[in-house]
C-alpha cells in the first residue's frame, strides 16, 4: 500500500517538474515584449470594451495611444476628460479638453403623436423591420421601437417606454459611447453636446419628407417651414430637405426657436419652467 502511494507521488512530481521545464522554454520562445506603459494606460481605462472610442476594446485603445504617443483624436467617452488628464502624464502629453456629449433621440413619434396604421408581427429587430416596411406609423424616418438601441447599450441607459413606444435615454447612465447611434438603422439617435447644466435644444424629428406628407403620419414632425431658422439670430439652425437641424456648437440655448415651432418638434431639456407671460409651446420632456 505504502509503495503504491510513494510511487504515485514520485511519478506525479516527475511529470510536474518536466512540464514546468517545457513550459518555461515555451514561454521564453513565445515571449512578447510589450511597452509597460500599455498596461498602465489600460488600467486607467474603464474596461467596459464598449467601442465608443472607435477601437476594438479598451486594451486596443491603450495600445494605440502608447504606440502613437499622442492623444490627438483619442477620446474615451466613458471616462471623459478626467480620464484623459490621467492618461496624459503616462505618455507625456497633455489632453485637449473635449465637451461631453450625450445620446439624444430625435423622434417623438409616440403612439399618441403618430398612431399605428398597421400591426407588426415578427422578430423584434429594428434592423429587420427597416428592410420590410416604413413602420407601423407609416413614417419612413421614425423610430421603429423594437429596441435595437436598448440591446446595444452596455450601460443599461436606454429602455423602451411602454406607453409611447419610444426609447428613453437615462441621462445619468449614458456615457455617450455611440453604440446606439450605430445600432439604429434609421440614424435617429445623435450624440449631441451635453450643454450647460445638461440643457439641450434639438429638433426631435429626422423626417425629410414634405410637410404635407409627414404631417399626415405624425402630429409632431418637422415640416420644414423654416420659422425657427428665421427666429434664430445665431445662424445655428439650418434647413435642408424639409428638415431643420440645430447645430449644437452654435446654439446659445435661448429657446426662441422652441416657441415658434408650429409642430412642437423642437425640444428643450432640463430648462427651468417658463414664466407665465411667456407661454411655452414646446413639449417639455419628462426627466
Amino acid at each position: 500500500m505504502n509503495t503504491a502511494i510513494l510511487f504515485a507521488v514520485i511519478t506525479l512530481s516527475i511529470i510536474g517538474v518536466l512540464s514546468a521545464i517545457i513550459l518555461y522554454f515555451i514561454a521564453q520562445k513565445f515571449k512578447v515584449i510589450e511597452d509597460p506603459r500599455i498596461d498602465l494606460v489600460a488600467e486607467l481605462l474603464p474596461g467596459a470594451n464598449c467601442g465608443g472610442c472607435g477601437f476594438a476594446g479598451c486594451r486596443n485603445f491603450a495600445e494605440n495611444i502608447v504606440k502613437n504617443e499622442s492623444l490627438e483624436n483619442m477620446f474615451c467617452p466613458v471616462g471623459g476628460n478626467d480620464l484623459l488628464k490621467q492618461i496624459g502624464p503616462v505618455i507625456g502629453q497633455v489632453a485637449e479638453e473635449k465637451e461631453p456629449t450625450i445620446a439624444v433621440l430625435r423622434c417623438n413619434g409616440s403612439f399618441a403623436n403618430a398612431p399605428s396604421k398597421t400591426q407588426y408581427d415578427g422578430v423584434k429587430s429594428c434592423y429587420f423591420i427597416n428592410t420590410l416596411y416604413p413602420g407601423d406609423n407609416a413614417c419612413p424616418f421614425s423610430c421603429l421601437g423594437a429596441g435595437d438601441c436598448v440591446v446595444s447599450c452596455q450601460f443599461d441607459a436606454i429602455y423602451i417606454d411602454e406607453t409611447t413606444g419610444l426609447p428613453v435615454i437615462i441621462e445619468e447612465k449614458c456615457v455617450s459611447c455611440g453604440a446606439c447611434v450605430k445600432a439604429c438603422p434609421r440614424a435617429i439617435i445623435e450624440l449631441r453636446k451635453k450643454g450647460k447644466k445638461s440643457r439641450r435644444i434639438y429638433v426631435s424629428c429626422v423626417n425629410k419628407e414634405k410637410g404635407a406628407i409627414s404631417r399626415k403620419n405624425c402630429a409632431v414632425s418637422c415640416i420644414g417651414c423654416g420659422k425657427c431658422v428665421k427666429e434664430c439670430k445665431f445662424e445655428a439652425i439650418t434647413l435642408e430637405n424639409n428638415l431643420a437641424y440645430i447645430d449644437f456648437n452654435k446654439c446659445t440655448l435661448c429657446r426662441k426657436c422652441v416657441a415658434v415651432c408650429p409642430q412642437n418638434s423642437i425640444h428643450e431639456l432640463n430648462f427651468p419652467e417658463r414664466k407665465a407671460s411667456q407661454p411655452a409651446s414646446g413639449v417639455v420632456e419628462e426627466n
Binding site: 415578427g122 422578430v123 429587430s125 434592423y127 429587420f128 428592410t131
Partner: peptide, 13 residues
C-alpha cells in the same frame, strides 16, 4: 421560430 426573419438580417449584414 422566425428563422427566415433572422436569416434575412444575417444576409443583409
Amino acid at each position: 421560430r422566425p428563422l427566415l426573419d433572422n436569416i434575412r438580417v444575417a444576409k443583409n449584414k
